[in-house]
């Protein structure tokens, strides 16, 4: 009896862990899409109205900014997953 509750709470924990993982990934990939597809492609012309230095913001995002955003996203993912792992005691 106690064994089965333990295993069901364990699988609940696994479900929660997976849910926090999915939420994190969804948030980060939205930023990825906004930076990569939104500002750099579909709205590049409107973004180009704003200047960053001497080039348009859209052009700058397409050739520089989005890459910086990608680096930050991968870093944030690794750090946030460390926290989630610790919370669920899944770190080795």
């Amino acid at each position: 009896m106690s064994n089965s509750t333990e295993s069901s709470s364990k699988s609940d924990d696994a479900k929660n862990y997976w849910r926090s993982n999915l939420t994190l990934v969804a948030v980060l990939l939205s930023v990825w899409a906004i930076a990569g597809f939104g500002l750099s492609i579909f709205f590049i012309e409107s973004a180009n109205q704003i200047k960053i230095g001497s080039v348009g913001f859209g052009f700058w995002m397409a050739q520089q900014g989005s890459i910086f955003v990608f680096v930050v996203l991968v870093l944030v993912y690794a750090l946030a997953m460390d926290r989630i792992d610790r919370k669920h005691k899944l770190n080795d």
């Binding site: 990934v25 980060l28 990939l29 990569g36 989005s66 890459i67 990608f70 996203l73 991968v74 690794a78």
Partner: peptide, 11 residues
């Protein structure tokens, strides 16, 4: 060639 790394790292 960089954005693909985000997919690789997260997914």
């Amino acid at each position: 060639w960089t954005g693909g790394y985000v997919l690789l790292a997260l997914l």
